[in-house]
Nucleic acid binder design. Structure first.
Lengths: 359, 359
DNA sequence: AAAACCAACTTGTATGCACAAGTGGAAAAT
DNA sequence: ATTTTCCACTTGTGCATACAAGTTGGTTTT
């Protein structure tokens, strides 16, 4: 007996697949009937049915009672789908980040599936679960509430364990080995503060968001730069806030105290800076003559405002492109570990001025 | 014989599914062996295998050679995924539209899959194909090159024939019965023009995009409003352009001719208006004293510019919310046909002024 | 010419049997 | 006490057979 170790029905399956792939059998054409195949391959009809049954399940064939078995139209191989979960989608710097991701992915024949956590960990979990269900081929996630412990780490860990390439954006998950593309926010804080120090300012205020890693790190940079030149940080020159920067998370008295004690302010981001500029304007003070302002992100707001903002530029689109191309490397297997930290550059505009030029 | 018309293996299948769903058989537990089941149900082992084989393919069970058959862990039912294909993602009014869609979908436990055509029909087709592959549960599409015949209508038609709910956004496909949520662009054109007529202007210019349905319809409204009050349209007061509004699609001489012949201009959108304002400023003319401007969309640009723009407001986020909630109705089956036309309102700002107040 | 019928084909359901091959625990041998 | 062997159990592959039921096209009947 020339007994091969491959089962008979497997042989038939391979034959049929070959016939379809080589286009000998075309879509929606009838294939050889079960009885004839059984005779041709000297096997029982039952074995033929086994092979055809499996191929039906695998999407190669379909059967019609009384008519025959037909070749299923082959769908083009599915493009890879990358899940992207960000805290916001259509505000501030996020459209630009997403555009960057979309650019790179679509150029590489990948699909984008978008989720939005709104900085809520429960919504983040929902997104994660449904992306897991949808079996995305890769996951890019900007952690929600990145300053606090994240309850979704377990799920992320499972997904990584399943072999899913995961990349975090802008922040990392605590207590989890993972790939990331983040910004060097400490360096950004140093850059912004050093710029003001170079301009001669010595009493520099800071407004920072305390519940996001980004805020904490920028604050650290703000402190580091001043400690280095021997300036000790006075309580009245720092405002920390939690939650929405545009809402009522900061009291007016806090602004007043701050402004009375400084010649310049480092703002957590452009939104904060724009709000601060309104308050300064209301008080009849001038920017940059009375108060210099430096902020972060260099969003549209920085140039749309009356006094153009000096801002440490968030790479936005470049960040999106970076994280997407790193994801492609992970998918292609050309890289295993991605630990990228992007540096930020200062864009000098009108809102900051040397102190010795002041009246 | 109590011969039921349902096949034996179907009976067994139903029994097993019931056992799993009622949690009598728990995930990863061994189930009754094939031989025992055959005896219990007085059927041959082959028939049992048929039932189990199908349930395996359907994801209820898995078999391990030599050990037994086990209950597969049931994944929670996948959330519905809605594919959204727009011409742009992160520019101009699109972030707001997408935010509106995302709001409604995520509140209804749906997932958003995003595609971007960049106004290219071939990229649009790519997106369509991959969404079809991914088996989205609904499709919202803003047609690319909506002023021209679209080569992807065949594919859309197939998808509709497959029972997929499809909604177009902002524009329709020619020669295809389908559901849509669009803007009443003719009415918008009338509104903008009538506003200027009411202010006493009689020589009104217009700049319109010719290769998009939106531009053609706004142009129609522009004409209609003037025809109604007996103003015949002079050639030198209209500039039509094709392609990118920010690029070189309009020649400087065209602007000059236009401006010499009018006291007011209706601009295709805010981008065009901002560009026109730059040119007017360069020529030393003032807005609105010398030239009144009305534009469409009421995007961020309208308020960020030096002279705040009078603009016919695009509903943006509301449009997104509308189209998403209509999609939910289609999915729920509470609606079959969606033919919605949204009206637009004029937002009066500084760029338009009554003509009799002019110097 | 239209309707009814039938035969030959297809796949679908079902039984019975046989042996292969992987698994795990009990019994036997070391 | 540990290793080996073996047996009973599981699922996997395979054959022969039978009839049910849907489809098609030609033949016969009306």
């Amino acid at each position: 007996m020339q007994k091969n170790n491959t089962p008979k029905y497997q042989v038939l399956k391979a034959f049929i697949i070959e016939a379809i792939q080589s286009k000998q059998w075309l879509p929606h054409e009838v294939i050889t009937s079960e009885n004839v195949l059984a005779e041709q391959f000297t096997m029982s009809r039952h074995t033929v049915r086994q092979a055809i049954g499996q191929l039906t399940n695998e999407g190669w064939l379909y059967r019609v009672h009384g008519k025959g078995t037909f070749v299923q139209e082959q769908l083009p191989p599915a493009r890879k789908t990358i899940g992207v979960i960000t805290t916001y989608i259509s505000d501030y710097i996020f459209p630009a980040i997403i555009r960057g991701i979309e650019n790179v992915l679509s150029q590489n024949d990948c699909q984008l599936m978008l989720g939005c956590s709104n900085q809520q960990v429960d919504k983040e979990r929902q997104c994660l679960e449904s992306m897991r269900n949808q079996q995305v081929d890769g996951l890019i996630i900007e952690p929600a509430k990145s300053g606090m412990p994240n309850p979704n780490v377990d799920l992320i860990q499972k997904m990584i364990a399943d072999g899913l390439p995961v990349l975090t954006l802008q922040a990392c998950f605590d207590g989890l080995e993972h790939n990331y593309v983040i910004l060097d926010d400490v360096q950004a804080g140093v850059t912004a503060t050093k710029h003001l120090l170079d301009l001669g300012h010595r009493r520099i205020g800071g407004i920072f968001k305390a519940d996001l890693a980004q805020g904490q790190l920028r604050y650290k940079g703000f402190m580091d730069a001043q400690t280095k030149v021997g300036i000790s940080l006075a309580e009245e020159r720092v405002v920390l806030f939690v939650g929405d920067e545009t809402g009522k998370s900061i009291q007016t008295t806090q602004y007043e105290t701050l402004l009375q004690n400084v010649t310049a302010v480092v703002c957590y981001n452009d939104l904060v800076a724009v709000k601060l500029m309104d308050i300064i304007k209301e008080k009849g003070l001038k920017i940059p003559e009375d108060i210099s302002i430096v902020s972060f992100d260099d969003s549209q707001l920085a140039t749309f405002s009356e006094v153009k903002l000096t801002s440490v530029a968030h790479p936005m689109e470049a960040l999106g492109e970076k994280v997407a191309s790193e994801m492609l490397s992970l998918l292609a297997g050309t890289k295993d570990v991605v630990h990228e930290k992007m540096l930020l550059k200062l864009i000098k505009r009108q809102s900051s001025k040397a102190i010795d030029e002041r009246v």
